[in-house]
């Protein structure tokens, strides 16, 4: 598996990564976001939706489990599996149905259900020293294979690693 690791130190850098990824998105893509509380997953999603032209306020889906945003270049279904440790509604989320409609899935805490998404771009957020974040981008399945080299090049531009 190819990996691209980037050090992110500000919200602006998170937004830049989100913009680069947003430009590569196609209907039915899946993005898995991993990382601890406060690591920047929702901040990333806000920037991604903004880059797609979505103007609605993007808020955390932790309790409602699924938020759908229309009005941009692509429909984004933003979901959060954090609560699935307690409430197992994965099939209730109707994510397959959303993908059939062409929506892009942005899944927070997708690592809690590792087998559910076998074809996805994985964006990991980790706390680094101080307020800094380390963002790791990788992929699984065939869907991202061809795009990843270009994506990786674009992600590297302007970063220190």
């Amino acid at each position: 598996m190819m990996k691209s690791t980037l050090s992110v130190t500000t919200v602006d850098d998170t937004a830049r990564i989100a913009r680069v990824i947003a430009a590569e998105l196609r209907p039915r893509d899946v993005l898995l976001l991993t990382g601890d509380l406060g690591a920047g997953k929702t901040t990333f999603t806000k920037a991604l939706c903004a880059a797609l032209g979505i103007t609605e306020t993007v808020t955390s889906p932790t309790f409602n489990l699924v938020h759908e945003y229309v009005g941009g270049r692509l429909t984004v279904v933003h979901c959060d599996l954090y609560r699935l440790e307690r409430t197992g509604e994965l099939d209730d989320l109707a994510l397959d149905e959303a993908r059939r409609r062409g929506a892009v899935l942005v899944v927070e805490w997708g690592d809690l259900v590792p087998d559910a998404f076998d074809d996805a771009l994985v964006v990991g957020f980790e706390h680094a020293a101080g307020d800094a974040r380390t963002v790791t981008v990788s992929w699984r399945g065939s869907n991202w294979e061809a795009r990843f080299v270009r994506l990786s090049d674009r992600l590297q531009v302007g970063t220190t690693t």
């Binding site: 699935l84 409430t87 197992g88 509604e89 994965l90 099939d91 809690l112």
Partner: peptide, 18 residues
Amino acid sequence: SQLDEHARFGGVVPEIAS
């Protein structure tokens, strides 16, 4: 409340909510 129900299954159970 379904919380007890979910706890009884000890984690992720697809479709359990509906």
